[in-house]
């Protein structure tokens, strides 16, 4: 692969990343959302590899490998196990309908590009569009967290925010030091396991994992 191809390829995968994001919110079932997240993470890993090749930053390859193993294999596995144990195969219940959420997502995308275009002093090492895409992914993760009623999708939203930050890290600075990246990945993995255990506890205490039911504590 010659190096001139890399920027256009990265842009192509960046667009695919956006499509995968929309897939998460448009998916009819939770498992489909999880698959869309796996695709999202895989594309993230591909972009990481391309950035690593373009910038000759070898330690990013390790981060990419870790992303593939952790976020496209292990975490979706954990999710599908959880879905089986919790017995939630039903449709995703949102507070708003899918077209409306997609409209908001597009709006968020515009906002992300708008706010980053005005920033002075931010000259990323790789490509300016990716700062916008990364910030969009963070916003989008928050949208996923607040728009869907299941506890599981809150975790998915959190993971999306983390993906967005990872993308920001690799495109702005060629990634954080490897030690820090490893630590963050470890934290994410542990967080997913612990949140999984708590989802079982919520199911045990509330007979469901709808966030609407969590209204015991006030004042």
């Amino acid at each position: 692969m010659s190096s001139e191809w890399i920027p256009s390829l990265v842009h192509f995968f960046g667009m695919m990343l956006l499509v995968a994001s929309f897939g998460i919110i448009a998916a009819p079932q939770i498992m489909a959302s999880v698959r869309a997240y796996a695709v999202h993470s895989f594309l993230l890993a591909v972009i990481t590899v391309l950035v690593a090749l373009a910038g000759h930053v070898e330690h990013l390859l390790i981060s990419a490998a870790l992303t593939v193993v952790l976020k496209t294999v292990v975490i979706p596995r954990v999710f599908s196990k959880m879905i089986h144990r919790l017995g939630v195969r039903r449709e995703v219940e949102s507070y708003a309908n899918v077209p409306f959420l997609l409209l908001i997502s597009v709006l968020l995308l515009f906002v992300s590009f708008y706010v980053t275009s005005g920033l002075r002093g931010l000259e990323p090492v790789f490509s300016k569009e990716f700062v916008s895409i990364a910030i969009f992914t963070v916003f989008f993760g928050m949208l996923v967290m607040i728009s869907v009623k299941k506890a599981m999708t809150q975790v998915l939203g959190l993971l999306l925010i983390e993906n967005g930050l990872f993308l920001l890290g690799i495109t702005m600075t060629f990634g954080m030091p490897l030690l820090v990246e490893l630590g963050i990945s470890f934290d994410v993995l542990v967080a997913v396991f612990i949140m999984g255990i708590f989802m079982l506890k919520i199911r045990g205490a509330f007979e469901g994992i709808d966030i609407d039911d969590l209204t015991e504590l006030k004042g």
Binding site: L158, L165, L214
Partner: peptide, 19 residues
């Protein structure tokens, strides 16, 4: 119920904050 709810809110809110 109440303590599971408290722990869940704690986990999610602090994780987003820390992100």
């Amino acid at each position: 119920k109440s303590s599971v709810e408290a722990a869940w809110k704690y986990l999610i809110l602090c994780s987003v904050g820390i992100a």
